[in-house]
Computed example of a mutant assay.
Amino acid sequence: MKAAGAVLWREADGDVEIAVVHRQRYDDWSLPKGKLDRGETIPACAAREVLEETGYSCVLGRFLKQISYTVGGDAKTVDYYAAEAVSGSFTANDEVDSLRWLPIADASSLLTYSHDRTVLAEFGRLPADLLLVLLVRHAKAGKRSEWNDDDDLRPLSDAGWKQASALRSLLPLWAPARVHTAPRVRCVDTVRGVAEDLSVDIVEEARLSEEGYWPDPDAGLVRLLEVAAQEDRAVVCSQGGVIPSVVQSLAEMGGLRLDEYPCKKGSVWVLAFTRPFGTWSTSDSPSRWPTLVSAHYLASPLPRP
Results as ranks from 00 to 15, higher is better:
A4F: 09
A6H: 04
V7R: 07
W9P: 01
E11C: 03
D15E: 13
D15R: 13
V16N: 02
V16K: 02
V21L: 03
V21S: 08
H22Q: 06
Q24G: 09
R25D: 13
D37N: 14
E40H: 00
P43N: 09
A44K: 05
A46E: 00
L51R: 14
Q66C: 12
I67G: 00
S68H: 09
G72K: 02
G72R: 03
A75S: 13
K76H: 12
D79Y: 12
E84S: 10
S87K: 14
G88P: 03
E95I: 06
L99C: 04
W101M: 11
P103Q: 11
I104Q: 14
A107Y: 06
S108P: 01
S109P: 00
L110A: 10
L111Y: 04
Y113T: 06
Y113G: 05
T118H: 12
A121N: 11
G124H: 05
G124Y: 00
L130C: 11
H138G: 09
K143G: 14
K143L: 15
R144I: 08
S145Y: 05
N148I: 05
D149M: 07
D151H: 02
D152N: 09
A159C: 03
G160R: 05
Q163F: 02
Q163D: 08
S165A: 15
S165V: 05
R168H: 08
W174D: 02
R178K: 09
V179Y: 08
V185Y: 04
V188R: 14
V188F: 15
R192D: 09
G193M: 10
L198S: 05
S199N: 13
D201G: 05
I202Q: 06
V203C: 13
E204Y: 07
E211R: 12
W214E: 12
V222K: 09
V222R: 10
L225P: 02
L225S: 07
Q230R: 13
Q230P: 00
S238C: 12
Q239V: 10
G241E: 13
S249D: 14
S249F: 08
L250P: 01
E252G: 04
M253R: 15
L256C: 03
S267P: 02
V268K: 04
V268D: 04
V270F: 14
V270Y: 10
F273D: 01
T279I: 12
T279M: 12
S283H: 07
P286W: 05
R288G: 08
L292W: 07
Y297F: 15
L298T: 13
L298S: 11
A299M: 05
P303V: 00
